[in-house]
Computed example of a mutant assay.
Amino acid sequence: MLKSILSISVFLISFQLFSQISTESERDKDGNINFFTVNTDVIPYTVMFHFSSLQNLNTSGGDVVTVVAMPGRSRATTLKPRQQNISTNYQYKVSYIRGNLYGKTKTEPVYFLPVQEGTIVLAQNMTHLENRLQPKEMNDDYVGVSFRLKEPTEIVAPRKGIIAGIHMSEPDEKDNLDFRRDENYIEIYHQDGSITKIMVLKSGSQKVELGELVLPGQVIASSAGENYNSGSHVRMVNIKPKKEEDDKLKYEQFPVKFITEDGAMFIEEPLSVMAVHPDELVTAEMSKREVKKYKSGKL
């Protein structure tokens, strides 16, 4: 039996800091101003246009327009003149966040434990690092799950998705660690607009490429963590875009259900569980064409 551990996190997301989104505008023959997003990433972004000034112009969504920018160039919104033959003017700014605010699935997704089938792990919810600093109040916000391993193992995709981020160049040099900000990680984007981030991976062990489609149970990298006080482990957190009441975008961390030999469950208390990979979950989010390819070994 694996011993219980305290896993910590200050989070959250060390996403790319350089800009992946730009906007363009064009005026057509009718005086309409068409806005476009240019997304150079491999996954969608949620983009918010904040119009601070609209002179003789209307939008379809008022002063704040929220759209999803797919990879490539796509139309975002249109400003239309209220009256013809009168001058127009506008001012705006743009904010954006990775993921699709409006993404949905038909059923609640269930995730694989991120290890090979038959592997036993100790699963435990993480806690904020600030809770170790004797705060006046505990921070109980959800920050993800830690999976402690008996030994280093191969790590798998917990759900179908697109590889959205890879950072695997950090060496394992320091010992006796509780947490480090520059952990190696792989991110997976899912069809409901959310992102899974798996951290504490062995440097250079990635088996996937940016933009690649991965299936549940597919090996993506190897675990690390031997230089941590808690021993070999990986950490996993799930996030999705959220629109605040003040028209700001933020990431929301949320718990997910994992499939185990005892069924689908949330991780609420430290629990020793064995990974299972039922075929019906491998194909759960596939299209009919993808299922046919998968069964024929072509996917």
Rank of each mutant, 00 (worst) to 15 (best):
M1Y: 08
L2W: 06
K3D: 11
I5Q: 15
L6D: 09
S7Y: 13
I8G: 10
L17W: 03
F18A: 15
S19H: 15
E24M: 15
R27G: 10
K29C: 14
K29P: 12
P44R: 08
M48T: 10
F51G: 07
S60C: 00
S60G: 06
V67H: 05
V67F: 09
V68C: 08
M70S: 10
M70H: 12
G72K: 00
R73Y: 02
L79C: 02
R82A: 04
R82S: 07
Q83W: 12
Q83S: 14
Q84Y: 10
I86V: 08
N89F: 10
Q91W: 04
Y92Q: 06
K93V: 09
K93P: 03
I97Y: 03
I97D: 13
I97K: 11
G99C: 04
Y102K: 15
K104P: 08
K106L: 10
L113R: 08
P114V: 03
E117W: 00
I120A: 14
L122W: 05
T127V: 11
H128M: 10
E130Y: 09
N131A: 05
R132P: 01
K136R: 14
M138E: 13
N139F: 04
D141P: 02
S146D: 10
A157E: 06
A157W: 05
P158R: 07
R159I: 12
G165T: 01
I166L: 08
S169R: 15
S169E: 14
E173T: 13
L177I: 14
L177S: 02
F179Q: 06
Y185R: 06
I186N: 02
Y189T: 03
I195G: 09
K197G: 12
K197V: 12
L201G: 05
L213G: 01
L215R: 01
G217R: 12
Q218K: 03
V219P: 02
A221S: 05
S223D: 03
A224C: 08
G225M: 06
G225R: 01
E226K: 12
Y228M: 03
S230Q: 14
S230D: 04
S232D: 04
H233K: 06
M236G: 01
K240T: 09
D246F: 02
D246T: 02
D247M: 15
K248W: 06
K250V: 14
F266Q: 02
F266N: 01
E269L: 13
S272P: 02
M274R: 15
L281D: 00
V282D: 11
K295G: 04
K295P: 00
G297A: 12
